[in-house]
Amino acid sequence: MLPRFWRKIRYRYDLIGTRCNTCGRNYYPPRNFCPVCRRRSSIEEVQLSGYGTVLSYSIVHDTPVGLKMEKPYVVALIQLDEGPIITSQLACEPEEVHDGMRVKAVFRKYGEDGEDGIIYYGTKFIPAEEA
């Protein structure tokens, strides 16, 4: 899984999405192909602001094995200001979260490949007023 993580580091660390210049739509996660314009797609990378709004969220209690220490954690659907919806963790207390909450991107650790393995960093979100 190491090369698989490394390949997307750029997009995970920094919210770099893609934009289709044909129709003007922004995508995150990045896409090589616009599902609206398909072969007429004209894709380029775009730096997203990292600000967004919580559309929905869940406090996760039944976690994958590697995330047991983090339990419970908050997963959310966040609509970024540029349009795309992203699935991400919220790095805050479960009690702090509410629908419609403004959030901003932060750099956090997502996990590690065991004690001897690599560390997975990426983007999480925190309440924007805290920024």
């Binding site: 698989r4 997307k8 995970r12 996660p29 559309l55 929905s56 969220y57 869940s58 996760v60 039944d62 976690t63 994958p64 995330l67 983090e70 954690y73 997963v75 959310a76 659907l77 992203i86 699935t87 991400s88 963790q89 629908d99 997502y110 997975y120 990426g122 999480k124």
Partner: peptide, 24 residues
């Protein structure tokens, strides 16, 4: 797994987010 699983969004977490929206 790249963009949902990586962040800890399990199947139940994703359905839970749909549930919350449906409730709302």
């Amino acid at each position: 797994m790249e963009w949902e699983g990586f962040v800890g969004a399990t199947l139940s977490a994703i359905y839970a987010m749909m549930t919350k929206l449906h409730m709302k």
